[in-house]
Computed example of a mutant assay.
Amino acid sequence: MGWVARAPGLPHLEPEATALLDRLTPMSAPAGMVLFHPGDTVKGFVIMLSGRVEVYLTGTSGRELLLYAIEPGQSCVQSTLGLMGGDDYSGEAVTRAPSELVLVPRETFLRLMDLSDNFRHFVFAAFAQRLQSMMHLLDRVAFQRIETRLARGLLDRAENGTLRATHAEIAVMIGSAREVVSRRLDALARRGIVALERGVVHIVDPDTLTEIAQSIE
């Protein structure tokens, strides 16, 4: 049995489409591996089998913004745009956990789009879902208060009430500057909502933090 049968989110495909994909060999990538840089040519469509990849955009000021994360069953919108429109990558992709993925070369991808209704539907559905998440990101960065974005970021990323990340990494997550995040975290700590250690944020009062996360202008 090939890898297609265990690929999360991939629909049941026609035999010819399955055979085309199963000829490809999954690759393993350790945490911290850069998969592509801005300006690189898009070489294929990524199918995640396990792990997590994060895609960042770097502004002219050098500040980074986390555009989206790719987990099993999800797609990379930059890869899809590049394959269908010919654009190069504008962001940088980094594995944040040990990952297993399959790179579907451009020629195979385009053949599958013509050959398989199910594969084509999978690509467009994943693409639409990713665009929707990008619209939510734009809304958060453009219109939500920094306190709201910070509170939501802490709640979304914390595991068992603890987030292990530097202030600079949190700033990238929510699309802000490290200095701004540091000031807001210090303010939350003074109110007893969080407790800070070097590289660690402990959520002490999740109810109040949730109220802040749900607040609107």
Rank of each mutant, 00 (worst) to 15 (best):
S116F: 02
N118K: 12
N118G: 05
N118C: 12
F119Q: 02
R120V: 07
R120E: 08
H121S: 12
H121M: 11
V123Y: 01
A125E: 13
A125D: 09
A125W: 01
A126E: 12
A126M: 11
F127S: 08
F127K: 09
A128C: 09
Q129C: 06
R130W: 02
L131V: 14
L131E: 11
Q132S: 15
S133R: 13
M134I: 15
M134K: 02
M135W: 11
H136N: 11
H136F: 10
H136T: 14
L137V: 09
L138E: 14
L138Y: 04
L138G: 07
D139N: 14
D139C: 07
R140N: 14
R140T: 13
R140V: 04
A142E: 12
F143L: 14
F143P: 00
Q144I: 01
R145P: 05
R145F: 03
R145I: 05
R149H: 07
L150C: 07
L150W: 02
L150N: 05
R152Q: 14
G153V: 08
L154H: 05
L154S: 05
L155P: 06
D156M: 13
R157H: 13
A158H: 02
A158R: 06
E159D: 12
N160D: 13
N160Y: 07
T162V: 15
R164Y: 02
A165W: 03
A165H: 03
T166I: 04
H167K: 11
E169T: 04
I170C: 09
I170K: 01
A171S: 00
A171T: 01
V172D: 03
I174G: 03
G175D: 02
S176D: 07
A177L: 09
R178V: 08
E179A: 15
V180A: 15
V181N: 04
V181Q: 02
S182G: 04
S182F: 03
R184D: 00
R184K: 15
R184F: 08
A189N: 07
A189W: 03
R190A: 15
R190M: 11
G192V: 08
V194Q: 00
V194F: 04
V194D: 00
V194C: 08
A195E: 13
A195V: 02
L196V: 07
L196R: 11
E197L: 10
R198D: 01
G199A: 10
G199K: 05
V200H: 04
V200R: 15
V200S: 06
